[in-house]
Design a protein around this nucleic acid. Sequence first.
DNA 1: GGCAATTACTTCAGGCCTCAAGGAAAGTCT
DNA 2: AGACTTTCCTTGAGGCCTGAAGTAATTGCC
Lengths: 161, 161
Amino acid sequence: MDLELVASDAQEGKKQELKLWLRLLATTKLMSQEIRRRLRREFGATLPQFDLLAQLYREKDGLRLGELSSRTMVTNGNVTGLVERLEADGTIIRERLEDDKRVTVARLTEKGRTYFEGMAEAHERWIKEMMAEVEPTILTRLLAEVGAVKESAQRHLSEED
Amino acid sequence: MDLELVASDAQEGKKQELKLWLRLLATTKLMSQEIRRRLRREFGATLPQFDLLAQLYREKDGLRLGELSSRTMVTNGNVTGLVERLEADGTIIRERLEDDKRVTVARLTEKGRTYFEGMAEAHERWIKEMMAEVEPTILTRLLAEVGAVKESAQRHLSEED
DNA sequence: GGCAATTACTTCAGGCCTCAAGGAAAGTCT
DNA sequence: AGACTTTCCTTGAGGCCTGAAGTAATTGCC
């Protein structure tokens, strides 16, 4: 057994996954903390709220809470609270379906629509600003490569659903 | 003005930053939810706790709460609570410095050290498993590219500290 | 029809998270 | 020394987050 090979093997390719994971985590944490701060300061909103509104924005007829839950990757119980707070300040409305009284549909109000448009514009600007120093070609490549990581992860979850 | 060019321009290079951001967010969310679930099920721990313990593990003499706060990217107020809970179940201990009675140092207990080693081993295995389908060369390239995104973002925060 | 299983949402306990305000110790300035 | 400032941590309010248990409404099966 060649010690040099073992040694280089141990320091070179080893723990690449772990390092990448930690870096991904640190990067998104850094960026979302910044986005959070700005959303709060300039719009009095939170990131989960922004995320939820973004889903509703592209569905004029609204979405059921369950659908909202899976699209935002947030648990049902959590969606209930988010929707309650957003309804309280008039951004969205919630109504029971007549056909099936179990389901509740949430929809943006007119006020909510304008409100979201302002945030979305700023949000996109902030992201571009933060990624300003990354080459466009790298950006494109990253999009694909991160996609590969996501798909790999998706195939290795414990109990599928 | 060539409409076709405009059209392809609008769909090709546009919003790459936004798309990448959303994908990064979705990927880390997916993976950390899975890690969270497993840490909880198999060790009764949470991700922030694991993160905090990892910092203490490599510092035999412990760390001041402020240092812990900046390394884990968690606010001071939050560290207080995390440390309290971890101290309560005997994983770490907290003691005031004699020289400077403002500072508190947290350190792993012997029990905490063994406990963490078990988690760390499993954690690394899970990460590798989730990234199993990503080519090693891509992994290495991603590490550098994500690093570039992080550095760009770091240079574009609102008020520096 | 009647009853079990499923589906859609809500509630709750426990923990994470931030920001802002506060208390106490140490450092600084005159 | 005494007052001002800074540093380090804690507290508290408000919101996010999950998993588990609970309540209706609907569906499916006999």
